[in-house]
């Protein structure tokens, strides 16, 4: 391997950037924690008796999860468009969205990519908040919506810490990633997974030691690269893990409670860093 110690090496530069963000972030988070209510919007939750059953997935022995290697992702949007195509997602709305962020000052600049979708939390706030009981779990822990029930309260959007849910503009029902269970039940992969030219997205059964996702995560661990999660302070136990500095650098821009993925993320004025222009 090449020695990067005295170089213009962006791997090294990115380590510095993320350390700075983490240091700043931790400080902010702890001060926020003291001043504000609990990390999730529990003020909007239903009583536990109402959602306890729906929080329990049917027992098929599977534990479905995601691993996104942001070091590999180069932001081709293939996963996003595949998802749009698979699910007829309306323009202006997104089940999956990849965020870009430029970091650094000329000539030491890097571009990072952060693919985002529903985190399929084990302790899903959307399930707890859904007033009509549409949100539930499918086999393997997939958090899904029953469209025979959902009538558009939108409280799920209010409480999702990751902005992963949108309200369909015509049907006025909640939509989010459903792990393509209609495909996985037939032995296919979710639409975003096989298409990725960079092999950055992994999905599968964490209970299966031979699964590709476990293999990929083990490879990363063996390379001494940290596996992280997004907004762990929310304590929702998301089923998505990441590798790479993009998570920390881009975290700030990812939508939160009360928000959904928006077209604004694609505007170059928003992801280039240091913008004087908003769009």
């Amino acid at each position: 391997m090449v020695d990067h110690s005295e170089t213009n090496d962006r791997r090294g530069f990115l380590k510095e950037v993320t350390a700075a963000v983490a240091a700043g972030g931790t400080a902010a988070a702890s001060s926020r924690a003291e001043a504000e209510p609990p990390p999730v919007r529990s003020d909007k939750f239903q009583p536990e008796s109402f959602w306890a059953d729906r929080m329990e997935p049917p027992d098929d022995g599977k534990k479905l999860g995601w691993f996104i290697d942001t070091r590999r992702c180069f932001g081709c949007h293939g996963c996003e468009v595949s998802c749009k195509s698979e699910n007829d997602v309306p323009l202006g709305n997104f089940i999956r969205q990849t965020f870009y962020q430029d970091e650094g000052e000329y000539p030491t600049v890097a571009r990072m990519f952060m693919p985002m979708a529903c985190q399929h939390c084990e302790d899903a706030p959307c399930i707890k908040a859904c007033p009509c009981g549409a949100l539930h779990k499918e086999g393997g822990g997939t958090v899904a919506i029953d469209y025979n029930v959902c009538c558009g309260h939108g409280t799920c959007v209010d409480v999702c810490p990751y902005g992963a849910i949108y309200m369909d503009p015509v049907a006025k029902q909640a939509v989010k990633c459903h792990n393509c269970y209609h495909r996985t039940e037939l032995g296919m992969e979710p639409a975003c997974v096989p298409t990725c030219p960079s092999e950055a997205i992994y999905f599968g059964d964490l209970n299966d030691p031979e699964s590709e996702i476990n293999q990929a995560m083990n490879e990363v661990r063996e390379a001494d690269v940290e596996l992280t999660q997004l907004r762990p302070e929310k304590q929702t136990r998301p089923r998505m893990w990441f590798a790479g500095p993009a998570v920390e650098v881009i975290e700030e821009r990812i939508p939160r409670e009360g928000e959904s993925y928006s077209p604004d993320a694609y505007s170059i004025f928003n992801w280039k860093g240091d913008s004087e222009v908003s769009s």
Binding site: K84, N87, D88, V89, V149, C150, Q173, H182, L186
Partner: peptide, 25 residues
């Protein structure tokens, strides 16, 4: 009929499934 991107989600009265479990059958 429907073109790509036109998603007619069921709605509480329609009693259809989405995502369609029969899509790839």
């Amino acid at each position: 009929g429907t073109m790509p991107g036109v998603c007619q989600l069921p709605g509480p009265q329609a009693k259809r499934n989405w995502p369609d479990r029969n899509k790839y059958r």
